[in-house]
Amino acid sequence: MPPIDDSMIVGRLLVAFGLGFVLGFEREIRGQQAGLRTHMLVCLGACLFTLCSIFIAVPLAGGESEEIRADIGRIASQIVVGISFLGGGAILRQDSRIRGLTTAANLWLTASVGLATGLGFILAAVLTVLLALFTLVGLRGLEPLVQRLRLRLKLTEEDAPPPPSRPRDD
């Protein structure tokens, strides 16, 4: 793996900062609890943890002793666990409704964007943000259509005759 210099570190952190902003801005304009700053911090923090995990492995990978090994995936896995805890806090139950699932999923996705950015997978991170925005914003237009379809199905079920009774086998 090529060495990472200071300009690469700054670039990756700035990209993570910007991508976190984009994902958080959508949540912010929707008035969600986890908005702009939360998403920016999650993405930036995941990126920094990832950069740290790379730097932990670099000196060890160049060592002459085969006994020195590092599992750099451990930090990434802990990011997933930690963000799951944070996302769980965003899910609220109000009466019979559950709110915050999309925000929790978006926080989880934001952490993955930060992780990918830290690893240098900028194209994958940007494409993920674009697809997420399409999901969050672009698919909102489908919600009224889905609601009408649900209503039709419900009305159809209510109007349908009951199923014929089966003769009992005694």
Rank of each mutant, 00 (worst) to 15 (best):
R150M: 14
E143I: 00
L131R: 03
E64F: 06
R97A: 10
R74C: 05
L123C: 05
A116I: 05
R93Q: 14
R148L: 01
L123V: 14
I122F: 07
T103F: 02
L115N: 06
A70N: 04
A124F: 05
L145P: 03
V129G: 10
D159T: 12
L92I: 11
T117S: 09
L123K: 09
V129F: 03
T110W: 08
L107I: 14
I91D: 02
P162M: 00
W108Y: 14
L139G: 01
L127A: 15
D159G: 04
I75L: 13
A124L: 08
F121W: 07
E67P: 01
S77Y: 07
G89P: 09
G87P: 03
I72C: 11
E64V: 10
F134D: 02
Q147E: 05
L119N: 07
I72Q: 15
L145C: 06
P162W: 01
L139M: 13
A105K: 00
L142W: 05
P144H: 07
F134N: 01
G100C: 04
D159C: 13
L149D: 06
V81A: 15
G89N: 07
A111P: 12
T156M: 15
L139Y: 13
A124G: 08
S65D: 11
I72R: 15
T156D: 15
R74M: 04
T135G: 14
T110K: 08
A125H: 07
G118E: 05
E143N: 09
F121Y: 10
R97D: 04
E143R: 05
V137F: 01
L142Q: 12
L86Q: 03
Q94K: 04
D95T: 02
